[in-house]
């Protein structure tokens, strides 16, 4: 640590200089934006993150509403079939009048409270598609990575072909192929097609990381394991792979962060992730500057939290060695 600090020059003055540069860039951007005809409306943005208008309560079926005297519930008599009236409760504000005919899905009233806005829902979708893709990408990457170091030529060839094809084509094109071709042929949902495209793409990079990790484990480890009577599979499973995965965990975490960012490309499919949600909010607010800054910050929060957590984890694991 000591040697490291002695090679750094500038100290706190350097940090100060960095802050000044950032402020200068920010200010000049601000003045530049003042030159164009644009009205900043930041106050609109929180509304799209967290909905404070409350949750809608909708009619479960077509019927006639009859308000209860307490003002917090109503009974709904089915229009057809003459079934028993059903009580719908939990309203803070009722938005229909006594005797109104409502149809299934119509808003009856609202319950106060907070609910997720479109940006928050998009963020959740981004997180969900990234996590699900990560699981499949890890499995795929592990299998292909093992194939790359296999003694079987067929496994080596197939793994190398897969890695070359995937790394040699743009993710956007792969997503189009998965969505329009494979998705149609196998009738996959947009989510499934998105997960498939992202897993296959990330899997190729993870395979290379896994291969590098395995090749970095000294040959003597395999020899020691084999000399103890372990099969090639057992030596890989109990001796080589645990060491390889430990040494590559920073690279794997970096790949996960890339995956989160790459997932923004699935917004071209009918999938409302954070980027797509941003586009929708822009089209309803006409405030593209604020919305895209906000979306960028949300991605940054996600990846920043993750890399922080990974660094903590690494330090804890490092202490055990």
């Amino acid at each position: 640590m000591r040697a490291e600090t002695s090679t750094l020059r500038g100290g706190w003055i350097g940090h100060l200089a960095a802050v000044i540069v950032v402020l200068a860039v920010g200010l000049s951007l601000y003045y530049a934006s003042r030159q164009i005809d644009y009205e900043w409306r930041w106050e609109r943005i929180p509304h799209y993150l967290v909905e404070t208008g409350g949750t809608e309560i909708t009619a479960p079926f077509d019927g006639t509403a009859k308000l209860a005297p307490d003002g917090h519930s109503l009974s709904l008599t089915p229009l057809l079939g003459g079934g028993e009236p059903v009580t719908v409760a939990g309203f803070d504000r009722i938005e229909v009048s006594d005797g109104d005919i409502v149809f299934a899905g119509n808003t009856l009233g609202r319950e106060h409270g907070w609910s997720a806005g479109p940006l928050a829902i998009g963020l959740w979708m981004t997180l969900k598609i990234s996590l699900v893709s990560l699981v499949f990408a890890l499995i795929l990457g592990l299998v292909v990575g093992l194939g790359r170091v296999s003694h079987r030529v067929v496994a080596r060839d197939l793994a190398a072909l897969y890695v070359e094809v995937i790394r040699g084509t743009p993710l956007l094109v792969q997503i189009f192929i998965f969505y329009f071709f494979i998705g149609t042929v196998l009738s996959l949902s947009a989510f499934a097609a998105g997960v498939a495209a992202l897993s296959v793409f990330t899997g190729a990079y993870i395979a290379e990381i896994v291969r590098g990790g395995i090749e970095a484990v000294p040959r003597g480890q395999t020899e020691a394991a084999r000399s103890l009577g372990m099969s090639a599979f057992q030596a890989m499973r109990h001796v080589v792979l645990p060491q390889a995965l430990r040494s590559t965990s920073p690279a794997l975490a970096g790949q996960f962060i890339n995956l989160i960012k790459d997932s923004s490309l699935v917004s071209i499919m009918a999938l409302t992730d954070l980027t797509k949600a941003g586009r929708e909010v822009v089209s309803s607010t006409f405030s593209p500057f604020e919305v895209w800054f906000c979306v960028a910050l949300l991605y940054l929060a996600l990846t920043g939290t993750l890399s922080f957590a990974v660094r903590r984890l690494e330090r804890r694991m490092g202490r055990h060695d």
């Binding site: 003597g220 020899e223 020691a224 000399s227 103890l228 009577g229 372990m230 060491q243």
Partner: peptide, 18 residues
């Protein structure tokens, strides 16, 4: 693999599992 279980080996570089 079975035959090797009968033959122990010690290496110059130890090769313990770290």
């Amino acid at each position: 693999d079975r035959l090797r279980t009968k033959v122990g080996m010690v290496f110059q570089q130890f090769n313990l599992f770290p």
